[in-house]
Nucleic acid binder design. Structure first.
Length: 792
DNA sequence: GCTTCGCATGGAA
DNA sequence: GTTCCATGCGAAG
C-alpha cells in the first residue's frame, strides 16, 4: 500500500514531495511548496506542483492509487472514491444506510442553491448529497464534528412520506395565513403570501439567509431552536429546490432533503416543528409563535385537501399565537369538517391582498340548518376550536362576514345536551337565504387575519362534484344557479344519472326544510316519491309547439329556454285536431306510469285511494295531478309571504328556473278549440274552480237570503253531479268549455300568476286560480268530480 | 294556528 | 359504551 498515512511526517525543511510515489524534490526557489492533505500531526502535506494539482483536481488517488484497494463508488453520482486513503478522506462521507457519497455532489447542489455558501461549505466540508435518484439515505460526515447535526433525514423521504409531505406542503401553502404565521421572528422573509407569488425570489433570499446564518454563525442551531436545523439543497437535475427546516428546541440539527419531481419546477420550503408539549406529542396547542413551522411550495395547488392526520397536525402546527383558535388540533376534527376551499375562494373572500385567510372548517348544511328554524348546528369541536369560548348557553353575538363583504351577526350559543354542549349559530336564515343555500350545500368558515374576522363562504352542492376541478368549483361569488335549478340538478346528479328520488318530506320535515312555499308539496302530510330519471323528466317537459329554445347556461348546465311554458306530460307529438289546428299534445300517461311516478304512501293518499275506489279514474287526472304540482309550486311561491330557505320568494328579477320562464302568452296562442292537454287541463281546472265558487256563492247566498244575488254563471254552467269529468262531452261541459275557450287561456295564466283574485267573480274577470290546493278543492268537490289521483 | 325556543331523542360514528 | 349531531317535539309566546 502506498498510503500516504504511512509516509513520514514531512519535515519543514524537506524539499521532497510528500507523495511517496513521487518523491520529487521541491525547490523553493523554483516553486513554492504546495499544500496537500492534512496530516495526522495537523500539518499539511507538501506536494510538488504535479501532485498538488492532482490533489486539487481530485485526481490524486486516481493517479497514484488506482491499483490500490479501497475504491468505492459514490451512491449518488457513482464516481469512484478512494476510501481508506488519507488523501481522499475529506472528499467523501459515509451514508448511514451504507455506502459513501462524494463531496462534489452536495457541493454542486449547494453551489446551485446558493452561490454564497459554497466557500463556507468547502470550509465546513459539509456533505450535502446530490439527489439524482432518491435513495433513502442518511449520512454523517466524518470530516466535521458538526456533521452530527447535519445528517440527512433519509427515512422521511421514502415514497410514502414523500407523497405525504408533498400533499402537506401543497396543503399548507394553500394557506396563506399559515404561511404568514409560520415565520414569526426572523423568518418572515420566507413568509410569502400566495397571492404575491414570488416564491423564488423570496426563497432565494432566504436561502442566503440560511446559509449565512448557518455558516457564518457556525453552530447557531445549537443555541437557536429556530435555526436549529437547516439544510439547503438544490437538485441540479431538476429545477426544484428544497429547503427543509426542522426546528426542534433543545435538540440537534437535522437536515432533511426531499426529492422533487423534475416536472415540478417549484421550490419547496418546509419548516416543520415537532415540539413536545405538555399535553403530549400530539398536542400542537402549545406551539408558540416562534415555533411555527413553515411550509411553502409553489406552484400552488389549486385546492388543499387534508388527507391525513399528519396533514392536519401540520396544519394545526401552522397556526400560532392563538392558543384556542389556531392551535386546536385538527386531528380531532372529523374530516368532513376539514375546510376545502379553493384559492379562488380564498381570494374572493379575502379581498384585501394584505390580509390572509385561514380556513377553519366547513359544514354541509343539513335540512335543519338550511331550514327556517334559523339555527345552524355547529360541530362541537369546530365551535370550541374556532369560535369564542362561551360559558353561558345564551352565548354571544358573533359577527361574520360573508363573501360579498356583508356583515352578519349571529348568536353563537349552545344548548346543554347529554352532559355536553350543542353549539348553534342562531339567526342564520337571512344569510342562508341571501346565499340561496339549501340542505346539502356547504358553508365554510374562515378567518381573516390579522383582524381575526370570521368570514363565511359557501359552496353549492351542485358544484361539489367538481371539487377536484377548481376551475369548475363554484365559489361563493360565483353565479349561483337558480334554486330550482339547483334542486333539479341535485336531484339529477346526486344519485347518478339514472335513478333519482325526490323525497317530498313529511310535514315535520317539510317544516324543518322551510317548505312553506310548498314548492314541491303534493301531499305535505305524507312522503311522496317522485321517481324519475333525468331523461324521463326531460320527456315530461314538452316544449310548446313552434317554439324554438334559446340555450341558457346556468352553472355549467344548459337549459333550453322556451318562450312558451313547457307542457308537463310525456313525449310531445304534433297532432291536429279536427279543426286542423296544430298543437303539441302531450302523450297521456298510462295509469301504471303515473302510479309508478307518483306514489303516495298513506294518509291522504289513502283517503284518495278510498275515494278512488269504484270511481272512474281518468288517465288525464294523473297528468292533471302533475300539472297541479307544477302549477302549485309556481303559484304558491307567488303567494307565499314567508321567506323560505328552500327557495327565496319569487320576485321580479328572480332568476330561478321558474321565474326565468317567460310568462305564457308570448308564445303561439292556443286555438279556442285546441284539444291539447294543456288546454284541456286549463279548461278543466277553470271549470272546476268556477263551479266551486259558484257553489260556495250559492251556499253563501242561501245562508243570507235577504241579500241580493250576485251575478253568477248561467244556470246551465252550474255543476251537475257527475258531470265534471274532464273528458266528458256532455252539454254542460261543452258550454263550460266554450266559455273557457273564449278566454285567452294564456292571459288567464298570466293573471293568475300575478294576482290571487279569489274573490273576484268568475264572470267579471274569468280567471283561473292556480293557487288552489288540489287536495282541498277536490275534497270539497268530490261529489262532483272523479278522483284524479291514481291509487296504487 | 303559527313560530320560536329549548331540550330530548335516537341514529351514526 | 360514548359522543356527536340531526331533528323531533312540546311549551310558550
Amino acid at each position: 500500500m502506498s498510503s500516504p498515512s504511512s509516509a513520514p511526517v514531512a519535515a519543514p525543511a524537506a524539499k521532497i514531495c510528500f507523495n511517496a510515489q513521487c518523491k520529487e524534490s521541491i525547490a523553493d526557489h523554483i516553486a513554492p511548496r504546495r499544500k496537500g492533505w492534512r496530516l495526522r500531526s495537523g500539518e499539511i502535506a507538501e506536494l510538488c506542483d504535479r501532485c498538488s494539482s492532482a490533489f486539487e483536481q481530485g485526481t490524486f488517488c486516481e493517479t497514484f492509487h488506482s491499483n490500490d484497494s479501497g475504491w468505492r463508488n459514490c451512491e449518488t453520482c457513482g464516481k469512484r472514491v478512494h476510501c481508506g486513503c488519507i488523501a481522499s478522506a475529506q472528499s467523501y462521507g459515509f451514508l448511514d444506510a451504507g455506502g459513501i457519497e462524494c463531496i462534489p455532489c452536495p457541493r454542486k447542489s449547494l453551489a446551485t442553491a446558493s452561490n454564497q455558501i459554497s466557500s463556507s461549505l468547502m470550509f465546513m466540508q459539509q456533505h450535502v448529497p446530490e439527489r439524482r435518484d432518491s435513495p433513502a439515505k442518511t449520512w454523517r460526515s466524518m470530516a466535521n464534528p458538526l456533521s452530527g447535526q447535519w445528517r440527512q433525514a433519509s427515512h422521511m423521504w421514502n415514497m410514502t412520506m414523500q407523497s405525504d409531505l408533498q400533499q402537506r406542503l401543497s396543503y399548507e401553502f394553500d394557506r396563506p395565513s399559515s404561511i404568514e404565521k409560520l415565520a414569526p421572528g426572523g423568518r418572515h422573509s420566507i413568509v410569502t403570501h400566495e397571492k404575491k407569488f414570488e416564491p423564488e425570489r423570496k426563497i432565494t433570499t432566504d436561502l442566503n439567509n440560511i446559509s449565512q446564518d448557518k455558516y457564518i454563525h457556525g453552530n447557531a442551531g445549537e443555541n437557536d431552536p429556530m435555526s436549529a436545523r437547516k439544510s439547503v439543497s438544490t437538485d441540479p437535475c431538476s429545477t426544484s429546490s428544497i429547503v427543509n427546516f426542522e426546528a426542534k428546541p433543545n435538540s440537534s440539527i437535522k437536515l432533511q432533503q426531499s426529492p422533487v419531481t423534475k416536472e415540478n419546477s417549484s421550490i419547496l420550503i418546509s419548516l416543520s416543528a415537532s415540539f413536545p408539549s405538555s399535553n403530549g406529542v400530539k398536542d400542537p396547542m402549545k406551539l408558540s409563535s416562534n415555533q411555527s413551522p413553515v411550509q411553502i411550495t409553489t406552484p400552488l395547488s389549486k385546492q388543499f385537501y387534508p388527507q391525513r392526520m399528519n396533514e392536519a397536525e401540520l396544519q394545526v402546527q401552522m397556526r400560532n399565537g392563538r392558543t384556542r383558535v389556531d392551535a386546536y388540533p385538527r386531528t380531532q376534527l372529523l374530516p368532513r369538517y376539514w375546510p376545502r376551499i379553493t384559492n379562488q375562494e380564498l381570494q374572493q373572500i379575502s379581498g384585501d391582498p394584505q390580509s390572509s385567510i385561514t380556513p377553519l372548517f366547513e359544514k354541509m348544511l343539513s335540512a335543519s340548518d338550511a331550514g327556517r328554524i334559523g339555527r345552524l348546528v355547529l360541530p362541537k369541536k369546530c365551535a370550541e376550536a374556532y369560535f369564542p369560548t362561551i360559558s353561558q348557553p345564551e352565548g354571544l353575538p358573533l359577527k361574520v362576514q360573508d363573501a360579498s363583504g356583508k356583515d352578519w351577526i349571529f348568536q353563537f350559543r349552545f344548548w346543554p345536551n347529554n352532559n355536553s354542549r350543542m353549539y348553534v349559530l342562531e339567526g342564520v336564515t337571512p344569510c342562508i337565504q341571501a346565499m340561496q343555500l339549501q340542505a346539502g350545500d356547504t358553508v365554510t368558515f374562515s378567518r381573516i387575519d390579522p383582524e381575526g374576522k370570521l368570514v363565511m363562504g359557501f359552496r353549492k352542492a351542485s358544484s361539489s362534484s367538481n371539487e377536484q376541478d377548481p376551475e369548475t368549483h363554484k365559489s361563493s361569488t360565483d353565479i349561483s344557479p337558480p334554486p330550482e335549478a339547483d334542486q333539479i340538478t341535485s336531484l339529477v346528479q346526486k344519485d347518478g344519472s339514472t335513478s333519482k328520488l325526490l323525497q317530498v318530506p313529511s310535514k315535520r320535515k317539510a317544516k324543518a326544510l322551510g317548505l312553506k312555499s310548498n314548492c314541491l308539496r303534493i301531499e305535505n302530510e305524507e312522503p311522496m316519491e317522485f321517481k324519475l330519471t333525468w331523461e324521463e323528466a326531460q320527456m315530461l317537459l314538452c316544449p310548446a309547439p313552434n317554439s324554438s329554445p334559446s340555450i341558457v347556461v346556468i352553472e355549467g348546465l344548459e337549459f333550453e329556454e322556451y318562450e312558451e311554458a313547457p307542457v308537463l306530460g310525456k313525449r310531445a307529438y304534433l297532432t291536429s285536431d279536427q279543426a286542423g289546428s296544430s298543437c303539441s299534445s302531450a302523450q297521456e300517461l298510462s295509469l301504471e306510469h303515473i302510479a309508478d311516478m307518483v306514489s303516495c304512501k298513506s294518509g291522504v293518499s289513502k283517503k284518495r285511494k278510498a275515494k278512488a275506489k269504484g270511481d272512474n279514474v281518468e288517465v288525464s287526472d294523473g297528468l292533471d295531478t302533475l300539472a297541479n304540482l307544477a302549477i302549485l309550486g309556481y303559484s304558491e311561491n307567488h303567494q307565499s309571504s314567508q321567506p323560505t330557505t328552500r327557495h327565496p320568494r319569487h320576485k321580479p328579477g328572480c332568476t330561478c328556473i321558474v321565474c326565468i320562464q317567460p310568462p305564457s302568452g308570448k308564445g303561439p296562442k292556443h286555438k279556442p278549440h285546441c284539444t291539447c292537454n294543456v288546454c284541456l287541463t286549463v279548461k278543466r281546472r277553470f271549470r272546476t274552480l268556477e263551479l266551486r265558487r259558484e257553489k260556495r256563492q250559492s251556499e253563501k247566498e242561501s245562508e243570507m237570503p235577504g241579500k241580493q244575488q250576485s251575478p253568477t254563471l248561467p244556470p246551465e254552467v252550474l255543476p251537475q253531479p257527475g258531470s265534471m269529468d274532464a273528458a266528458s262531452t256532455g252539454p254542460i261541459d261543452e258550454v263550460a268549455t266554450q266559455k273557457v275557450t273564449k278566454m285567452n287561456v294564456d292571459a288567464v295564466v298570466d293573471e293568475a300568476s300575478e294576482h290571487r283574485t279569489t274573490s273576484a267573480s268568475p264572470l267579471k274577470t274569468p280567471q283561473i286560480d292556480l293557487n288552489i290546493q288540489p287536495e282541498r278543492e277536490e275534497e270539497t268537490l268530490v261529489q262532483h268530480q272523479t278522483v284524479s289521483l291514481v291509487p296504487y
